[in-house]
């Protein structure tokens, strides 16, 4: 699946991010190439969410650098990072709960004023998650957990991103919908997007990913192709119980 020699879209170079002086991630480096699905996995508290926050501008790394399409984005405001083409679905989704599904989607295309730039991703979103089309006038808060995750991904797609970052999209969701969301991620990549996926479900993630990084207590402890990581004895012991 991996196309060798394609451009690096995202380059995170030895960033350290702290909360009130306490180190959450330390000296973390990852890279994501054009068209890849890259998974970042690790136990609770390993620093996966902090890594995504540091890329999206929600948190500012204390040191190191983040580059997107060749330019530095660490220190750039969050809304500008979205405008540059990184869409981020945080772990608690952050939908606008009392606004309708339609308004949440329309807000996703806030930066696009041309009708075509709004209609095209909307069409994609409805094909990806047909059930959203049936719930346009419902308040976002009335959706089930799985539907809310679908809406959050859809809102992110409405920004027409180049890179989509998802923080544990399978969290708190019925198993049936988890499959649907993993299938959707593969479809989204086929549309030409690059995906950085944070997950605790390593096994399912490795099935769709090209490469993986394993975080442990704020550090990258293992990196490689999905096959390499899946074959690693420590990983097999920790995640497969072998």
């Amino acid at each position: 699946m991996l196309i060798w020699g394609t451009a690096t879209v995202l380059e995170v170079q030895s960033i350290t991010t702290t909360y009130q002086g306490l180190i959450a991630i330390s000296d973390v480096s990852i890279d994501v190439k054009q068209g890849e699905i890259v998974v970042v996995a690790g136990a609770n508290g390993a620093g996966k969410s902090t890594l995504l926050k540091s890329i999206s501008g929600m948190e500012r790394p204390k040191s190191g650098s983040v580059s997107f399409e060749g330019s530095r984005i660490d220190g750039v405001a969050g809304h500008d990072i979205t405008a540059r083409g990184i869409a981020y679905v945080p772990e608690n989704r952050r939908l606008f709960p009392r606004l309708s599904v339609r308004d949440n989607l329309m807000l996703g295309s806030y930066l696009h004023r041309k009708k075509a730039d709004r209609d095209a991703p909307l069409q994609q979103v409805f094909e990806l998650f047909p059930r959203l089309a049936e719930r346009l006038d419902q308040r976002a808060e009335t959706l089930s957990g799985g539907e809310q995750q679908m809406l959050a991904i859809s809102r992110a797609l409405m920004t027409r991103p180049k890179l989509l970052m998802l923080d544990e999209p399978s969290q708190g969701i019925m198993p049936k919908l988890v499959d649907e969301i993993f299938r959707a991620i593969v479809t989204i990549r086929a549309l030409g997007l690059t995906i950085l996926l944070v997950e605790q479900r390593l096994i399912e993630s490795l099935e769709i990913a090209d490469r993986a990084f394993i975080l442990q207590t704020g550090r990258v402890v293992l990196a490689g192709t999905a096959d390499e990581v899946g074959a690693n004895p420590d990983i097999r012991r920790a995640y497969l119980g072998m």
Binding site: A77, G78, H79, I81, T82, V89, L107, R113, M158, T159
Partner: peptide, 24 residues
């Protein structure tokens, strides 16, 4: 209007509007 929707969204969650590119 789009601005009206941005206003409503900021009322809901000012910390989340950056996710859709709005400068709160």
């Amino acid at each position: 209007t789009d601005f009206g929707r941005a206003l409503a969204a900021t009322r809901e969650d000012a910390g989340a509007v950056a996710l859709v590119g709005i400068d709160r």
